[in-house]
Deep mutational scan, measured.
Amino acid sequence: MDEEYDVIVLGTGLTECILSGIMSVNGKKVLHMDRNPYYGGESSSITPLEELYKRFQLLEGPPESMGRGRDWNVDLIPKFLMANGQLVKMLLYTEVTRYLDFKVVEGSFVYKGGKIYKVPSTETEALASNLMGMFEKRRFRKFLVFVANFDENDPKTFEGVDPQTTSMRDVYRKFDLGQDVIDFTGHALALYRTDDYLDQPCLETVNRIKLYSESLARYGKSPYLYPLYGLGELPQGFARLSAIYGGTYMLNKPVDDIIMENGKVVGVKSEGEVARCKQLICDPSYIPDRVRKAGQVIRIICILSHPIKNTNDANSCQIIIPQNQVNRKSDIYVCMISYAHNVAAQGKYIAIASTTVETTDPEKEVEPALELLEPIDQKFVAISDLYEPIDDGCESQVFCSCSYDATTHFETTCNDIKDIYKRMAGTAFDFENMKRKQNDVFGEAEQ
């Protein structure tokens, strides 16, 4: 370990593993360490099931009705991949897709007046949907046509809207959309967690709705994908990429100290040895004095023996409960997957309800979601602090990732990755940087 590296990475969460992969592909010498004996950090999948019970201090362990412990891979952080989103792009560019198998999530649902409705995925579904009345549908269709044709580089498509100054509230007004449709559009399509976006320039919202539609167009059922064997497969896929390009991995490796000289990182000390480096990437748990708390998320993992009611017996789905429907500031989400994804025993389902904490009784906040899941065989409640770095790391060369937020997709995580890359490399992130180099010394032969 007593060696000189360009970059040392602490923690094998998804953000850290993707950055480690990119740095290795770009010719950097990388050492990647984790104090845990497993990959994934906060974003790991726990197996066998006995391990999950232990982690949540349920000492009696799983009953026999849960089947074989080894058949379970339970995500600690519930997220899906947008089919046309940035993480899929990263997987394709790096060819990490060859280590993973994905399934399309069967449906996306939205909560309205105590019931759940399928988010329409085709024009026919939209016309048949009970989510809105006849005239509302016509106006909504006009709005969707506007979004589909919108091109930020072609003012002819703006229809009198200025993407940089017109607020989204004004765009909704222009198409005369009612409150329910606005809730549905902002939260189930643009996937905002709160209503803060309404008074911001509309460009980002329009682009988010386009991303949803384009992702949906790829597979038809929903815009989301999920990897077989759980999300823990993602960091491992990128760790393989890093290793192929010469990255060194050490799990179960305690970090005793991060060594600084004149305010700059110069190395990491572990078990009496020092590895030197020019730059350091880590998750917040490794540098508690360089991060601040930015809120909390509650996630309740529920094991069920039945599909969720009114989802047409889907073996995977997402449910969004827009905040307006339950008098909150932030949406509540449910991600459900099952034995069909090799993450649970035969006939079992895993539904994870999550939201940003707003009160001193977080469990009560998630109740509307839990009511949709009854009866629940077993619950595991996790309340996590969200951390963000206190500075950009440019001076110390210590670059810290943000905690995983309450969103049900990876777009915010990818933004964090691109942002850290830019601060480390001094140049904007470009997907081309992730391409495997042809015929290089570490390149794998085609399968």
Rank of each mutant, 00 (worst) to 15 (best):
G11D: 11
T12S: 08
T15N: 03
G21A: 07
I22L: 01
S24N: 05
V25Q: 11
R35H: 12
E42V: 09
S44G: 07
E51K: 09
R55C: 08
L58K: 08
E60Q: 07
P63Y: 14
M66I: 06
G67R: 07
I77V: 11
G85L: 10
Y93H: 10
T94K: 00
R98C: 06
G107A: 07
S108W: 09
F109Y: 04
Y111K: 14
K112R: 11
G113W: 11
K115M: 10
K115T: 04
I116V: 09
K118Y: 01
F135V: 11
F143K: 01
E152W: 06
T157P: 02
E159N: 12
E159L: 11
G160Y: 01
G160N: 07
Y172D: 01
D176G: 10
L177T: 11
Y192S: 07
Q200H: 05
L203A: 01
E204T: 15
R208F: 15
I209W: 03
I209L: 03
L211W: 07
S213N: 12
L216I: 09
Y219F: 07
P223V: 00
L231S: 08
L231Y: 05
E233G: 11
A239T: 06
S242E: 01
A243E: 05
G247D: 12
M260V: 09
N262R: 14
K264M: 01
E271N: 12
G272M: 08
E273N: 12
Q279D: 02
I287V: 13
P288R: 12
R292P: 05
R299F: 10
I301W: 13
I303F: 07
L304K: 01
L304N: 10
S305G: 10
P307H: 00
K309G: 07
S316F: 00
C317Y: 03
C317I: 07
C317A: 13
Q318A: 05
I320V: 13
V326F: 11
N327T: 06
S330Q: 12
Y333F: 15
V334D: 06
S338H: 08
N342Y: 12
Q346G: 05
Q346W: 13
G347C: 08
A351F: 07
I352M: 11
A353C: 01
S354N: 06
T359L: 05
D361K: 14
E365S: 02
E367C: 15
L370G: 04
P375H: 00
S384A: 00
I390V: 10
G393I: 15
C394N: 13
S396G: 08
Q397D: 12
V398A: 09
F410S: 06
N415T: 09
D419N: 13
Y421A: 05
K422N: 09
K435D: 12
K437N: 07
D440N: 12
G443W: 12
E444D: 10
A445Q: 06
